[in-house]
Design a protein around this nucleic acid. Structure first.
Length: 757
RNA sequence: GCGGGUGUGGUGAAAUUGGUAGACGCGCCAGACUCAAAAUCUGGUAUCGCAAGAUGUGUCGGUUCGAGUCCGACCACCCGCACCA
């Protein structure tokens, strides 16, 4: 392991973020950054935007006030432009865990469906009040007639005949107009706004709807009309922000229809044992021209008919949404834009970069300190030289982490973020390691950012930033909270005589929470420095490596650390005793005792196994194999020169292999063996294939699948010999009493199974 | 709610990917050494049973000569759900 400190990077330093501001401007030039309105959580008492994490049970974490969903004009990265490329790119990521590739695929969420328009059959009352906003793309352009259309997206056009309502997001451009003056609308909107903005909060909220009283015509059934509802489970961000509901074949529509007593019309023939809602395959029924077709055929036929009517078309949609690029916080890279009353939004000229954060800020009031700063945001417009203000939003820190790997390649370069020379030399990241928590967001943002930079002309090394990925499991720990909800460090609490958790300082009662991933905000963190101080770095390292496989979640505990420490002491003792006789063993003898051959087999099997373990990140298995080898070494008593040679071979291989686990002691032991070259400069040992095979094999013997005994045979023994030997066993004879042997299954090297009845 | 994982002794885990479940540790028990303790060494340790044997990999069901491993349904916990990063 080598760390080149001259390449140290701090994303909060202007030397880093000045490049990021340049990138932001380049993305803007390439139409990969834009502004639009989006929903945020709003704390009405603090008058500030809240992160999803700061919304607890629908209330602001500091004020306890119910949060509101509000719209805010913000910057977005156009990641959706890359949806298909990011999806296709997953296929090339052969050294990524399957689960992460699956999660990314699902997150991008490509779906084939249909987009179609329903005609409103009921008149709108207040046409004159219709705002500009309500004429955007989701509502079709109005011509001279007063025909209003609602465009919906569906992945199940085959179930159109089962439609029983049309639903719109509560913030759909047409929503207000459709509601008109109808009673209950304001209350309904208020209730929708009271749900947080997180998808989990929206999906888990009780489904509520508002009947607008309007009707639309069914596109395929002459004279049939469907009611138009507003509903809180329809997302404006996905599809067209409007759906048609087919309760018989969709979970959410079913729940909604049940609540508002809407018809539930099955149109897919389903197995008798299934219940509604049924989402499986089957033949279409009750659907006129679609009857008898399977789901896929019916989808195609429905789309063809919609296209014929010029009412709709087949479309591909993605679940992926554009990336909200900014936050209303001090701590982040300032967005290099200026707001001018005359010129609008003006990029900061490149020669004025970086736009640096002020250092004299105060956190006394809630909200963004940049916005409240007395001078920082006031500037002049680069175009008209008039008075203007700086953008006070700062970039999401995910932006910082989307390209830091590129900066490492050329961190000493003052002039540019990274040069072609550097990226040509280093290439993409060979092996990336991080927690599964990053499976989607960070890893997708980096993949996007890399492509976006490439398309802005930056010399990125490859389309994919990380060729290999390993995801560690979460290191979990219980959380502790005082009665006023403040988190406290595990090291600051203890159990009193009654077994209750209290703070060490003042014995205030603390509530113990579940084992969750260690995080700064929840303070459930332990500093491993303590175990390094007490037991040394080698023991700490061995302990961590030998404990759990790194891809599994663990509950952090130091139970067992003493075992690692004792083991290290033991190795040191053993070596002090043995090193003198192992120093000069001479040339490899031509023959070995049986015991020496056994030890050599164990040594070479260990070399093979440890290598495999490390390659596969199974460090705990590698350690286990090494402990087996050291057990074999410590119980081996040499009787002749060949034995001593074999022992030296075993010890040497052991020391070389334990080097990554306990580098300090391993180096010491290596010197004890008389070596002058440092261990770190030696070659990893190689296993002799001839010593990986045994000359005998042990087979398990089963009768009807039940283990009875084992037999040991020469490796060369054939199937007949194995059968005969198995049948000769007393335990087998006993188990077969009164039964006739029907057949015998022999799996070479593994088992013999006698099937009898 | 949705997407992805995990579940094996008192405990961390292993099992060559359908073939001897529990390797290797931690802990515990017993013994040796010691006036004693610690350290160290030796042996034991899935459960029930004196034994023969039976049972056992979250639960229930299935496929198979054979299931921790495959299939179906469920339960619990963890990660993520786009403003924690």
């Amino acid at each position: 392991l080598a760390i080149d400190w001259s390449r140290e990077v701090a994303t909060c330093h202007p030397k880093y973020y000045k490049h990021q501001q340049k990138m932001f401007l380049d993305l803007y030039k390439n139409d990969l950054v834009y502004r639009k309105e989006s929903m945020v959580n709003w704390d009405p008492i603090d008058n500030t935007v809240l992160a999803n994490e700061q919304v607890v049970d629908g209330k602001g974490w500091r004020t306890g006030a119910p949060v509101e969903r509000r719209k805010l004009n913000q910057w977005f990265f156009r990641i959706t432009k890359y949806a298909d490329k990011l999806l296709d790119g997953i296929k090339t990521l052969e050294r990524w865990p399957e689960k992460v590739r699956l999660m990314q695929e699902n997150w991008i969420g490509k779906s084939q469906g249909a987009q179609l328009k329903f005609d409103l059959t009921t008149p709108l009352h207040c046409h004159s009040e219709r705002s500009e906003e309500s004429r955007d793309s989701s509502a079709s352009p109005q011509n001279d007639s007063e025909k209003i259309q609602i465009e919906v997206y569906t992945t199940r056009p085959d179930t159109l005949f089962g439609a029983s309502f049309v639903g719109l997001a509560f913030d759909h451009p047409l929503a207000k107009e459709l509601a008109g003056n109808k009673e209950g609308y304001d209350a309904f909107i208020k209730e929708c706004q009271a749900t947080g903005t997180s998808e989990a909060a929206i999906e888990q909220a009780e489904k509520i709807g508002f009947d607008t009283g309007h009707r639309v015509a069914h596109p395929f059934i002459e004279g049939k009309e469907l009611p138009v509802y507003l509903a809180n489970f329809i997302l404006m961000d996905y599809g067209t922000g409007a759906i048609f509901g087919c309760p018989a074949h969709d979970e959410r529509d079913f729940e909604f229809a049940t609540k508002y007593t809407l018809p539930i019309l099955p149109v897919v023939d389903m197995p008798a044992e299934e219940k509604l809602p049924y989402t499986g395959p089957g033949k279409i029924v009750n659907s006129e021209f679609l009857n008898g077709k399977n789901v896929d055929e019916a989808k195609a036929a429905a789309i063809a008919e919609l296209e014929k009517q010029q009412r709709g078309t087949g479309v591909t949609k993605y679940r992926l949404r554009d990336w909200g690029a900014v936050r209303q916080r001090y701590w982040g890279c300032p967005v290099p834009f200026i707001h001018c009353d005359t010129c609008g939004i003006v990029p900061v000229p490149a020669d004025q970069l970086p736009v640096e954060l002020p250092h004299d800020i105060n956190y006394d009031a809630p909200g963004n300190p940049l916005d409240r700063h007395p001078t920082w945001k006031h500037t002049t417009c680069p175009q008209c030289k008039g008075k203007a203000t700086r953008e006070t939003d700062t970039m999401d820190t995910f932006v910082d982490s989307s390209w830091y790997y590129l900066r490492y390649l050329d961190a000493r370069n003052e002039n540019e973020a990274f040069s072609k020379k550097a990226t040509d030399y280093w290439g993409a990241v060979d092996q990336y390691i991080g927690g599964v928590e990053h499976a989607v967001l960070h890893l997708l943002y980096s993949r996007f950012w890399t492509r976006a930079l490439r398309d802005c002309g930056y010399p990125v090394p490859a389309d994919e930033p990380f060729t290999g990925l390993f995801t560690q499991g979460m290191v979990n720990h219980a959380t502790f909270q005082t009665e006023d909800g403040k988190y406290v460090f595990p090291t600051d609490v203890e159990q009193n005589e009654k077994g209750d958790w209290v703070t060490k300082d003042g014995a205030k009662p603390v509530k113990i929470g579940p084992q969750i991933k260690m995080s700064k905000s929840k303070k459930n963190v332990i500093d491993p420095q303590d175990i390094i101080d007490t037991y040394g770095a080698d023991a700490a390292r061995l302990f961590i490596l030998s404990d759990s496989p790194p891809d599994r979640d663990i509950e952090w505990t130091t139970a067992g650390i003493e075992g690692a420490w004792r083991y290290i002491n033991k190795l040191h003792r053993m070596m002090m005793e043995a090193s003198s006789e192992l120093k000069d063993v001479g040339a490899m003898p031509s023959s070995f005792s049986e015991a020496a051959i056994k030890l050599r087999r164990e040594t070479h099997k260990a070399i093979d196994g440890v290598g495999r373990g490390i390659e596969a990140f199974h460090m705990n298995k590698a350690v286990a194999i090494l402990r087996e080898l050291s057990n074999a070494i410590s119980s081996f008593k040499p009787n002749d020169a060949g034995d001593t040679w074999a022992l030296r071979e075993a010890v040497e291989a052991f020391v070389q292999m334990i080097n990554p686990m306990m580098p300090h002691l391993a180096e010491e032991l290596w010197e004890q063996l008389g070596h002058k070259t440092p261990l770190t400069q030696t070659q990893w040992p190689k296993a002799d294939p001839a010593l990986l095979e045994n000359d005998t094999v042990t087979l398990a013997v089963q009768v009807n699948g039940k283990m009875r005994t084992t037999i040991t045979l020469p490796a060369s023994a054939d199937q007949k010999a194995a059968e005969a030997e198995a049948l000769a066993q007393d335990t087998v004879k006993a188990a077969l009493e009164g039964k006739a042997v029907k057949k015998i299954i022999v799996v070479p090297g593994r088992i013999v199974n006698v099937v009898a009845a």
